[in-house]
Every structure is written in C-alpha cells, then in structure tokens.
Design a protein around this nucleic acid. Structure first.
Lengths: 235, 235
DNA sequence: CATTTGAGTGCACGGTTGTACACTGACAAT
DNA sequence: ATTGTCAGTGTACAACCGTGCACTCAAATG
C-alpha cells in the first residue's frame, strides 16, 4: 500500500485502471445513465455522506478524505464538485433552510395554525423526516466554522422576518409595530429551535421522551401567545 | 528537524537539555515557586490556552499539540495534567457552569430581580467578563463531542431546576405546580441563552449592537412574565 | 545528607490530512 | 469519424496528529 486508501475492494474489482464506473456503486441495471446525471448522483452522495458522517461529530470533525471515501470517489475528485469543504457546508445550510422554509409554508396553508398544537405537529413531522439536516443545522448554528455559522445566521434572520409578516396578519396583532412583531417572532423561533434540539435528543438514554418534549413546548408556546394577547404594543 | 516542534526559540535558548524552567515563561522574579504551584500554573495555562485557541474554532478543532504549545510544554507532558483532551473539556464545562451558577446567586441577592432589566444587566456583565467561557459553552452545547455535550446538558438541567425553585418563591406563583414552574424556567433559560449567543456576536460586522440585543431581550422577558401573570396553572 | 518523586524533555512511530500533478477513457459535440 | 470535455484515477509530498518510551533534574521527603 503506497500511500492512499485501498478500501471498497468490491468496486475496484473491475481491473481496468482508472475505470470511471468505479465511483458510486452502479446499482441500477445497465441503463446508460447520462453524464450530467452521474455527476449529480455523486454530488448527492457527497452531501448525504457528509450528513451521515456527522451522526456523532461536528462538520469540522469530518475530513474531505472521509467524505470522498463514503461517496466512493478518490479524494482529489472531490474538487470536481466543490471548491472546498466549506462550500459543501454552505450548500448543506441552504438545503436545510429550504426544508425549514417549506415547513413554514406548510404551516401557513394549514388552517388554524394559531393553535400551538397544530404547528408543533408539523414541526415534529419535519424533524423526524429530515433528522440529519436538522441535526446539521442545530449543531453548526453556534458551533461551526465561521463561514457556515454566518450562513445559518443570515438564513435564520430571513426566517424570522418571514414569520414576522405572518404574525402581522393575525387578528389582534394589526396594531403592533414592526419591532414588537419581530421581537415576538424571534422569541417563537428560538423557542421552536430549542424544541428541535430536544426532539433530536429525545428517546435517547437519559433524555426526556418525545411526548414530554412536545407537551412542554406546547405549553411554552401557549404561554408566549398568552403574553402576546396582553401585550401593550410600542412599550 | 527530526519530527517535532521547534518553536519558542527564546525559551529554549537556555542550552542545558531538558531544562524544566522552559515551561510557562517564568515571569515573576526569582522567587522559588513551589512545585504544586508550578503545576497548577501550567494546568491553568492549558485551560486558558484552550479557550484562547477556541476564539474562531470549536473544541474539536484544537489539537492536543496546539494546546501544549501555547502552554509552553511538550505534547506528551499534557498527560501529566489530563488523561485526555475530553477530560480537559469536561473541566472547562464545570468551570463555565460554575460561573453560570454564580450569576444566578448574584441575581438572587440583588433586590427586585423580578424586573427584567436588573437581571439582564447582571447577565451582560457576566458575559463580558467571561467571554471565552460563555463562548465555549454556547459553542459546545450542541456542536461538541458527545461527552462534552452530555456534560453541559446535565449541568443545564440542574440550572433550570435551580431557577424553578427561585420562581416558586415569587409572589403569585405559589399556586403553580412543579411542572408549570419548570416549563416556565426552561423557557426563560433558553431565551437567556439565546441572548448570550447574540451578545457574543454583537458589535461585530453585520450583527446587531449590544444595546439592541439587550433591549429586545428585555421585552421578550417582559412578554414571558406577562404571559405567566395570566397563566392558569395546571392546564 | 541521600533518596524519591514527578513535571517536563526529546525522539520516534505509524497514521491521517489537504492538495498538487499528470493521467485516462466514456460520453458529447462537431 | 474525429475531437474535446471532464469526472474520475493513482502517485506523491509535506504537514500535522496522538502517543509510547526512556530520559533528566529540581523540588519534596525522610
């Protein structure tokens, strides 16, 4: 073994050297997948593989080589898809925030989202179906490398202002000025985010169960809304 | 250069090999510092140096060698103080949480802490005088290695239950059952923690100013307390 | 005084990392 | 049919990593 990795011997079994087909184990039959499609496939493998590797580590803790390895390509080929690992990270941020925004849109469409329970249900479902992405966001929001942290912060601010607009349309909040609305939106978002973290940790030894987490969050949200109903805007 | 670091040439200038005095640049005159005191000094240098190195990176991103280097000792000497880097991390958690608890105690002693402004002032002061420790806590709370994350979670739960007891002594909350009190305490703590993060980021390009952060937090806290005053316990 | 202790040293090791470089060969376009 | 593109390859290197080992020598111990 000269220097580099010599794993995935099954895929390398094809003896011809520099065989392009070695990458991303060709699962589908023999259909001649288009070039662009193949590229997109390994790109996705890189992104998904990174999230997988982050099950128990932070983004800074996974190496370019590991990522390439799990995607089934050689380290240097990574650069065909991303200029750096940070760039991959930023893409993951965008992907995650797209899910978050989708969730807000779902909540908007659902009738009576002003009841805390309904919105929480949506949150729980989204977290469960996109665990890895939410874990990535919560883990890197404060802990990540500066570039990624800034990317999340920016997207987060956008998210808050979207919710601010939503709030402004609710009966009884029309008289509120923008600052108060944003203040409340910020409080709601940060509370919801704490729920996300608890959900990801839930049903693990030494943690509260999912039901408990949701029940508590629901009461917290109701308490906030109760405060809002008594709030004297502009103070 | 065979393998290892060859930095800090000034300290190595003393030509005698394996000179113990090379560690932790002897700043004070020539007083014969006791052995235990010297050990404590490098131990502190290791802890402080780690926090310093974490100015722009997460705990997982600093290496044992770097830590030893900034403390002025050789990498292997690190093990005279900690069995592993994780152990050092856990000590940092304890140190940080001691500060947090001290803050709660300060707040308890201050009259009229039920007014949001007073408690926030204490928070801001503590964050400013212990920036590095708070940065460590906020960065590793969700992003850190499992061992440290668990340590912080445990201490955090303790902190919430301390605040729960405090709340139970406030006029008008005596009728609340324990679950409701804890729910409110949890909400307050997570909101305050969000403030800490904002404070650490404040006055940096692209972020809100400290005054804005405090003003918003104060209103958020007032909103929560308003909600509590109208809360119907046991629902 | 002689002896023990232990914080610190220097060297060495096997391993991993990011990335530069020259390459190949299947697909796409001409 | 010829050519160009470019995702993927293998080799190589210098830097860094954690840690084992045998050491030194000032301070503490008796």
């Amino acid at each position: 073994m000269p220097d580099d990795e010599r794993e995935h011997p099954e895929v390398v079994a094809v003896l011809s050297p520099a065989n392009t087909l070695t990458a991303v184990s060709q699962s589908t039959g023999a259909e001649p997948e288009s070039r662009a499609a193949r590229k997109e496939r390994t790109r996705k493998a890189l992104l998904d593989g990174t999230l997988e590797l982050m099950a128990d580590r932070s983004f800074a803790g996974v190496s370019l080589r590991e990522i390439a390895r799990t995607a089934g390509i050689v380290p240097t080929a990574f650069y065909r898809h991303f200029a750096s690992i940070e760039e991959l990270g930023v893409v993951l941020v965008e992907e995650g925030m797209r899910i978050l925004r989708q969730m807000l849109r779902d909540a908007r469409r659902t009738p009576s989202t002003k009841s805390a329970g309904a919105s929480l249900d949506i949150l729980v479902r989204q977290v469960r179906t996109h665990e890895a992405q939410f874990r990535f966001l919560s883990r890197e929001r404060y802990g990540g490398v500066p570039e990624i942290r800034r990317a999340i912060a920016t997207e987060m601010k956008l998210f808050v202002s979207e919710l601010t607009v939503d709030l402004s349309r609710i009966d009884g909040l029309q008289s509120w000025d923008h600052d108060d609305l944003e203040m409340a939106a910020d409080l709601i978002v940060s509370t919801m985010f704490a729920v996300v973290v608890d959900l990801l940790e839930a049903d693990r030894p030494g943690s509260r169960s999912e039901a408990e987490v949701v029940a508590r969050a629901e009461r917290q949200l109701r308490l906030i809304m109760l405060g809002m109903s008594g709030w004297n805007p502009g103070t």
